[in-house]
């Protein structure tokens, strides 16, 4: 990864001496969708504000597109689009007027601003309500208007804070689709969320936050291997006599659990789907179902913190 757009080293934030973000380091590559995940109050928003130069950095450093947000905040803010948690717009102005204001703050020429604005509003599906006051907008529409603002800015990095919180499932799916599309515009995306599973589907890599620290960092499958270990869960359904024993005999299978009639869950140390299929069919049985269950982010997260707790209990 030669072209990093965000590099944070030992980034620390203290409020009145109390550390909120405790020396985190991470980097985001160009064109990547990077997730900052963790419970509320874990330090995600503070980290984001430090990257934008909107709050002071107590210690450590961060570079955004090579600029220092402390000394060159205007350069950073010119190139980075930010969608705050529960974004607000001026309610008495229309969607277009709100975006025009942003366009002028960025310094776009009027005609340039109008055409870019139209494209951006088209892109997020708000072209019908351009001249409606924002006070009539739903939460999902405001979030999309926020994304339109980032598109208008032609930002190289989009920082989205809790973009899907408070949205209904349909609006969430639409928004995640728009976020995925940002990647096609060659925009790097950094998003924060406490909804692990929703976000798992769009993120290339994630950092799991816990109490101001980054607990884990990497792609979801990588994290799965790190935390849950090289174990795969296989879900097998089949008919035949003595399948139980046959499944146990497959090399690589460490445990066979009977879930129900003709239904087993296998723990294996590698992907042995082909061998399992061969074993079932070879013994004259019928294979009805064979599926590999990849670990979800939620499973990784809960497992990690259970391990942590147990570790600390042992240590104590």
């Amino acid at each position: 990864m030669s072209n990093l757009v965000i590099e944070a080293q030992n980034l620390t934030k203290r409020y009145d001496g109390v550390p909120v973000v405790k020396g985190i380091s991470f980097s985001v590559a160009q064109g990547e969708i990077f997730g900052l995940l963790g419970p509320n109050g874990a330090g995600k928003t503070t980290t984001i504000l430090m990257m934008l130069g909107l709050t002071e950095i107590s210690d450590g450093r961060v570079r955004v597109l090579g600029y220092d947000p402390v000394r060159e905040p205007l350069q950073v803010k010119r190139r980075v689009g930010y969608l705050p948690d529960a974004v607000g717009f001026y309610d008495h102005l229309t969607a277009a007027e709100n975006l025009r204001y942003t366009g002028r703050l960025i310094g776009l020429r009027r005609d340039e601003c109008e055409s870019k604005m139209r494209t951006a509003l088209d892109h997020v599906g708000l072209h019908d309500v351009t001249d409606r006051r924002v006070s009539t907008f739903s939460r999902g529409m405001r979030q999309r208007l926020g994304i339109a603002e980032i598109l208008l800015k032609e930002a190289q990095i989009a920082i989205l804070d809790e973009p899907t919180s408070g949205l209904d499932p349909q609006a969430t799916i639409e928004l995640l689709e728009i976020i995925r599309n940002l990647k096609n515009h060659n925009v790097s995306v950094l998003l924060s969320s406490h909804l692990l599973d929703r976000v798992q589907s769009v993120c290339d890599r994630v950092a799991l936050f816990s109490q101001g620290n980054i607990a884990l960092i990497g792609s979801v499958p990588e994290l799965g291997r790190q935390v849950i270990g090289d174990s795969f869960d296989l879900d097998v359904e089949g008919e035949g006599s003595g399948l139980d024993a046959k499944l146990k005999a497959v090399p690589g299978v460490t445990l066979v659990e009977t879930v129900g009639l003709n239904h087993w869950r296998l723990k294996t140390d590698r992907d042995v789907r082909a061998d399992v299929a061969a074993a079932v069919v070879g013994s004259g049985g019928k294979l009805l179902r064979l599926s590999l269950e990849a670990p979800t982010l939620e499973a990784i997260y809960t497992r990690y913190f259970r391990n942590e707790r147990e570790g600390s209990r042992h240590a104590a």
Partner: peptide
Amino acid sequence: NQRTLSRILSQPIY
């Protein structure tokens, strides 16, 4: 209160 402050300040102005 309108939650516009952080959005406006994330534009390139002081």
